[in-house]
């Protein structure tokens, strides 16, 4: 990929926005302003930012409960996300969804799904509609290494391949499903992408800490999916720097493992690379940092100044 300056700015800005947004949300959580589960994406930013902006506006994105990074990379308004996390009426679901259930129909961001593996059949169905309506769109569906042992994963891969549906299955292998290492959960070992090949789905494993590499692999995979040959599977090797959720005491990972992966921080790594390569100046980096900080501050103010939902909205939108 012949990286240009505007692209480098976007990569850096989007990854940093996710990082700072989530750091801020974790502070609000500690202050009790965000409750429930809060699953941070910190460490995995290169995957969302490498993958999602490669889509067209009318393509679909399907996420899981660790969805803030995906939503931000899809261009969802940080204010609206933060307000949802705080349970406010101005949130994306008026306070009815919460952190795990973000939706934005205007961006074909089809959700935030709280059940491990549950989003996969739905992504397949979106792709079925795309094919049926001859829309030429693609469905990008994210899931974790924990989801691949669910029946729904296998049912979905099989059907998407059988019916040649336009899905890009995007596995973020961060080596853990909550506190359990993938070596202890998946018979196929760490190379989960090989499972996809048994369903005749072309698959590859990529470095999920390298935003440029993720973009290259995604672009190639999307072209292939758009060709109409059926789904493609990408496995991005990555790592979450924080606990599974903010309720996680984090007693199951070796300090040395965490340190080693933190040494490959996708934002620092890309920032250094871009500055060394002359794509970004130190001033750019500073400017982006300020811009991102302002945007995050604005999202917090917006959320804090927003009203709680009115009690009489509680029965709204159960049926249509």
């Amino acid at each position: 990929m012949n990286l240009q300056r505007p692209q480098a700015i976007e990569f850096y800005r989007q990854m940093l926005l996710i990082r700072r947004f989530e750091e801020a949300s974790s502070r609000l959580y500690m202050q009790g302003k965000i409750r429930g589960f809060l699953h941070l994406y910190i460490g995995q930013e290169a995957v969302a930012v490498g993958a999602i902006p490669a889509l067209n506006a009318d393509d679909y994105v399907v996420s899981h409960y660790r969805d803030h990074g995906h939503a931000l990379a899809r261009g969802m308004d940080p204010k609206v996300i933060m307000a949802e996390l705080c349970g406010k009426v101005t949130g994306s679901s008026g306070g009815k969804g919460g952190s795990m259930h973000l939706f934005d129909s205007s961006r074909n961001f089809m959700g935030g799904y709280g059940i491990v593996g549950g989003q996969l059949p739905i992504a397949v169905g979106l792709a079925l509609a795309v094919k049926y309506l001859e829309q030429g769109r693609v469905v990008m569906c994210f899931f974790g290494d924990g989801a691949v042992n669910q029946g729904e994963f296998h049912e979905s891969l099989n059907l998407a391949s059988l019916w040649k549906l336009p899905v890009l299955f995007f596995l973020e292998n961060n080596l853990y499903g909550m506190g359990t290492h993938v070596d202890r959960t998946h018979a196929g070992g760490r190379d989960i992408y090989l499972t996809a090949e048994s369903y005749k789905v072309p698959a590859a494993q990529i470095d999920g800490m390298d935003v440029v590499g993720v973009r290259e692999a995604t672009t190639e995979a999307l072209a292939r999916v758009r060709d109409g040959g059926g789904p493609v599977f990408l496995e991005a090797m990555t790592y979450r720097f924080r606990g599974h959720s903010l309720a996680d005491p984090e007693e199951y990972r070796d300090e040395s493992e965490v340190t080693a992966w933190r040494g490959r921080d996708p934002i620092e790594w890309f920032g250094e690379l871009a500055v060394e390569g002359g794509l970004l100046s130190d001033a750019d980096v500073e400017e982006i940092a300020e811009e991102v900080a302002a945007s995050v501050r604005e999202s917090i103010q917006f959320a804090e100044n927003s009203a709680e939902p009115r009690l009489d909205t509680v029965y709204e939108n159960l049926y249509g």
């Binding site: 059949p121 739905i122 169905g125 979106l126 509609a129 795309v130």
Partner: peptide, 17 residues
Amino acid sequence: AESVIVGSAIGAAMGGL
């Protein structure tokens, strides 16, 4: 595969069918 039958129908419904 009942889960993907129903699940893909949900997705198809979200996608306009």
